[in-house]
Amino acid sequence: MASANKINNKVRECRFFANEMTQQDLAERVGVTRQTIMAIEKGKYSPSLEVAFKIALVFQKSLEAVFSYDAAIE
C-alpha cells in the first residue's frame, strides 16, 4: 500500500476547470465510488496506476499534470 502523503494531486482543480464536474460524475467515468474520489482529493488515498491514468484521461491531461510525487515527504 502506498503512503498517502507522498502523492499529491490536482483532481479538485481539474474538476473545477472541467465545468465543475461533480465527484459522482468523475467517479462514474473512472469506475470507482464517490468516496474514493473524495479520499483521493483529500490526499488520504493514493489510487492505483490504472485509476490515476483513468482520471488523467477524463480531464485529457497527462498523468504528471494531475498527479505528482513528492520525494521530500517521508
Binding site: 500500500m1 459522482q24 467517479a27 462514474e28 470507482v32 465510488t33 488515498y45
Partner: peptide
C-alpha cells in the same frame, strides 16, 4: 444504493 459500482466496490474497498 445509487449504482452497481457502489455495490461491487472498487479498489479502495478491496484494500
Amino acid at each position: 444504493s445509487r449504482n452497481k459500482m457502489e455495490i461491487d466496490g472498487d479498489e479502495r474497498d478491496r484494500l
